[in-house]
Design a binder for these strands. Structure first.
Lengths: 152, 152
DNA sequence: CAGCTTATGTCAGAATCCTGACATGAGTCA
DNA sequence: TGACTCATGTCAGGATTCTGACATAAGCTG
């Protein structure tokens, strides 16, 4: 390769490995969520609402790592199907707080159990120290990736 | 929450953090690749071919973590646009080996530099020991997520 | 009080990806 | 030698996501 062989060696790339790990996790999650009629983004949305009722479309988009548009489409479907509820008019500004319905909460319960089993599997073979290290390292990557985007 | 509050606490979930890190990396990569008329999957495809010429559609799909169908669509576009070439007939069985064209290689050079800068940024703040640990931990997660899918 | 900036919700269209299915070639086994 | 399994390439349709844009509300500043 040109430039003195200075390519990105995918076998030694931490970015590539991160992508691989994320893809493996997503596949495993989709596998247990599919029978529940749910995908990863739907699950994330419902879980976020269970832990912090009243989040807005924008909040949920950020929390689930998708755009406001994608989340809007999902929320409209969830609302239509009775899993969440939003006020017809914004109580403050333009923010529409979203809340789980009893149906939404019930649906989430099964999904949470399924997702938890995947996470337990993922952590098998890792000590507590490993898990702490993984947390620290992933946070470091996130921080570095976002921090440098600041043009200031 | 029911079950004695046994939900998946997203703030303490390694799976959620993995998703966040992957999303941050993807955003950062898309940002530098977009001006080059490329996205992450295209880049991965070209990079895989640079390092291992002759990969098939199925090989590339596995290497870029997408389905054979998605990769087929991408390969057809890359072929039409002159970045890769595939034989009209399979030399062996049904496998069509794909190779980069000079245009493809040239396009990849710029992308590689851009992606490398993102990876360098991501690793800022990490020691060599940190990077080794990150590798080991991510491999462990991948292994655990895939190993247990074996119904045997 | 007017102008500006930021944030939010939503729209339309396009891009990307997945699922299910089908046809075909190679390898294995009885 | 035929049947079976596995792998591959491709098709069609649908699902999911993104980009760019627009309208509106709140907060800040001069």
């Amino acid at each position: 390769m040109s430039q003195g062989g200075v390519g990105v060696d995918l076998d030694k790339s931490l970015g590539y490995l991160l992508k691989e790990a994320s893809s493996a996790l997503r596949s495993a999650m989709e596998e247990v969520l599919r029978p529940l009629g749910m995908n990863v983004t739907r699950y994330a949305c419902l879980e976020l609402l269970a832990q912090r009722p009243g989040l807005s479309n924008s909040d949920l988009a950020r929390g689930a790592f998708v755009t406001r548009q994608s989340m809007n489409v999902l929320l409209q479907a969830l609302e239509r199907e009775g899993y969440v509820t939003r006020p017809a008019e914004a109580p403050v500004g333009k923010v529409l707080p979203t809340r789980l319905t009893p149906l939404g909460r019930q649906s989430l319960e099964k999904a949470t159990v399924a997702v938890r089993s995947v996470e337990v599997r993922m952590l098998a073979g890792m000590t507590d120290a490993d898990q702490s290290a993984a947390f620290r390292l992933l946070r470091s990557m996130i921080h570095s990736l976002r921090d440098n985007n600041d043009p200031a």
